[in-house]
């Protein structure tokens, strides 16, 4: 392995032992390399983790294209686009934060990290609005099970209550030119909408969990930044947090067209 000089990592430590160098590494460069390599391998596992869902999406789309044509009408394109812009912007601020820490600008670092977190929270807020909307119209998967949970002790017909909002569904379908569906046709479409919503909630839900994890990680980094733990000679956590956040952004970049746009 060739040791190449990393100027900004070895400056300013007066030739003394690097406080951030773990005992089992022989140089900060080796440690930094190992951390980044580990992170990239982890990101690869994340790609495959989401990959399972992308595969499910692809299989259902290939076999039942109509499901997706119908399904995307029930998503809110402007809100999805707004979320895309939010995440891209937060990716920019994260990239700028990495630059700030590399240059040792602590106040910039703190500010940029804070903006990144706020964007992440805003993203979740928008997501919550969308989910609420779906819930209100009962456009959720697993009506039967949800009905079962909610029906304990009740004698009314819970299943009916948890069917997708018929007027809403019919209105949306009518907008797309499918008017006067007979009952069988309508039932068939609603059943398939369930599968679409299953895939939609799995994909966006898993992604939202990753956004939450990213926000937690960046908040932890923010605390470190406020306490001045990072500088131009040690910024591995900021760098790795950034990589993770960008990956979350990248996955959304695919989710947005796949779910909201394509018909």
């Amino acid at each position: 392995m060739t040791e190449s000089h990393i100027p900004n990592m070895q400056e300013g430590n007066d030739g003394g032992p690097d406080a951030h160098l773990a005992h089992h590494f022989s140089s900060p460069a080796q440690q930094y390399d190992a951390a980044r390599l580990g992170m990239w391998i982890f990101l690869m596992t994340e790609i495959l983790f989401f990959g399972g869902l992308f595969c499910a999406y692809a299989v259902y789309r290939a076999n039942n294209p109509q499901i997706f044509v119908d399904g995307h009408r029930f998503l809110d394109k402007p809100l999805g686009a707004a979320n895309t812009v939010l995440l891209i912007f937060s990716s920019l601020t994260m990239a700028l934060a990495v630059r700030a820490v590399q240059l040792g600008r602590r106040r910039w670092l703190v500010g940029l990290l804070a903006i990144t977190i706020l964007c992440g929270l805003a993203f979740l807020g928008v997501k919550a609005i969308e989910y609420k909307h779906k819930w209100d119209h009962r456009m959720v998967p697993g009506q039967a099970r949800i009905a079962y949970w909610f029906s304990r002790g009740e004698t009314s017909e819970p299943l009916k209550k948890f069917q997708p909002d018929e007027a809403y569904v019919k209105e949306r379908l009518a907008q797309a030119g499918f008017e006067d569906l007979d009952q069988a046709e309508y039932d068939q479409r609603v059943k398939h909408l369930g599968t679409y919503m299953g895939i939609y909630f799995s994909l966006t839900g898993l992604h939202a969990l990753h956004v939450v994890a990213g926000i937690v990680a960046i908040s932890w980094i923010l605390v470190g930044a406020v306490r001045d733990r990072f500088g131009s000679n040690y910024f591995t956590p900021v760098d790795l947090g950034g990589l993770y956040w960008h990956l979350v952004d990248m996955i959304w970049i695919y989710l947005f067209p796949l779910l909201y746009l394509i018909h």
Partner: peptide, 25 residues
Amino acid sequence: MKTSPAHIVEVRVLLAVFAALIMLT
């Protein structure tokens, strides 16, 4: 394996990438 130097990306490059991303969106 070559050790990767920690590159500092120019602000204008980052802004240009951001602009491109927004435009593509």
